[in-house]
Simulated assay, not measured.
Amino acid sequence: MNSQSELDRVNRVAWNSPDATRVFTLEKTFSDLGEQAAFEWLAPRCAGEPLLDIGVGTGRTIPLMTAISNDYIGVDYTPKLLEIAKVQYPGRDLRHMDARDMSALPSGHYGLAEFSWNGIDCVDYDDRVAILKEMYRVVRPGGYVLFSSHNRGGPGYRENIWQLLPKFSFNPLKLGWRTLRSMRRFQLGTLNYVRHVKLNHDYGSYAVKTAAAHNFGIVIVYTTLSEQRRQLAQIGFQSDAVFGSCEGNRIADDVEISDTFWFHFIARKPVAAGPFD
């Protein structure tokens, strides 16, 4: 099995884990200030338009998207998470579908296709391109895509297993509690890290690396601003806005280095015909 298919296998295991179910069912609205800023930017531009919610998971983004428009479809490739979403939102059109092949959906139809919580980072780089091409295909001319992606230059890229050790305290009771609480996480995190570290590779403009989330149970792509903008342009998109996750600030077009954890990219399909239609 090659590293690309192994990356996909590792992440599918994580999405079916009890930890993923716990995290994705926590009461939450926006994942961060950057996502909130991106939705506020898009809302007046996509109001009443058909919306496609990719990687809907347990349904966190459903109320965020349907606040913009009730013409809504959500898709996800993890049946376990999708079933939870269907129970929570029984009246919504939620479908089992892989973002790399959305051929069941019409071309040039949606005013917005959104892929939240860095879901696009969880496949290999060629499949990342395939997802963006599918998003380009399904949105109408003049329509938008929104997705988040981990920052190659951000603090998340520097995370390692030592952060799972208990934080020191001069209070023995507090230190003892922290130690007990971290024992299982450290053991599992170390095991996952050792299993997955062979998939780590730095390509310069982007990298593949095991991430701290889910006890180092996932392996993801970290991108740079310049590489993601280049990739979007190659596919045919026009980059409209980028928001940083930490403070929700809009990142200027001429900025190439940021210390935010991840980016929220907004791009538009030009009104004129382009490739992959």
Rank of each mutant, 00 (worst) to 15 (best):
T61D: 15
V194C: 09
C46Q: 11
S69D: 11
S205D: 15
L105G: 00
N160S: 13
G248V: 03
A233F: 02
A104H: 00
W177R: 14
Y77K: 04
E227F: 00
R60C: 00
D19I: 08
A212G: 03
K133V: 10
R268W: 05
G274W: 07
G57T: 10
S205E: 15
T66E: 13
K174N: 06
A233H: 05
D254L: 01
F237Q: 05
R185C: 01
F216M: 04
G142R: 09
S107G: 07
P106N: 09
D93S: 02
I84V: 12
A272D: 13
D8C: 02
I220N: 14
T66S: 11
R181C: 08
D253E: 12
F276M: 03
Y206F: 10
V87T: 13
S239P: 02
V10R: 13
E49A: 13
G34C: 04
R128G: 06
Y136L: 06
G248R: 01
T260E: 06
D19R: 11
V129M: 10
G236S: 07
S3F: 13
R195P: 01
D71I: 06
R9P: 01
V13M: 05
R137A: 03
P141L: 11
D32L: 04
E247K: 02
S245C: 00
G176P: 02
S258T: 04
A130L: 08
V255R: 04
I62W: 05
N70F: 02
A38N: 07
I68K: 07
A85V: 00
E134R: 08
I161L: 12
V219F: 08
N151Y: 02
D253F: 01
A130C: 08
S245E: 06
H109G: 05
G142H: 10
T223R: 04
P79G: 03
H214A: 15
M97F: 05
Q4K: 11
G217A: 07
Q4G: 01
R230P: 01
V221W: 02
D53H: 00
G217L: 03
D253A: 12
V271F: 12
H109K: 08
G189F: 12
Q163G: 14
F168C: 07
L64R: 05
V208T: 15
Q228M: 08
Y72L: 03
D71Y: 05
T190C: 05
L165P: 07
T58S: 11
R229K: 02
N160C: 07
P172N: 07
G142K: 08
L42T: 08
P18Y: 09
I257W: 05
R22W: 11
Q228C: 01
S148W: 14
K86D: 01
G119A: 06
A47M: 08
R95F: 03
M102T: 09
N118G: 05
T61W: 04
F276T: 08
Q4C: 04
I62M: 09
P106C: 07
P18S: 10
L146T: 14
A212P: 02
G217E: 04
D101T: 13
W162D: 15
K28S: 13
R100P: 02
T260L: 00
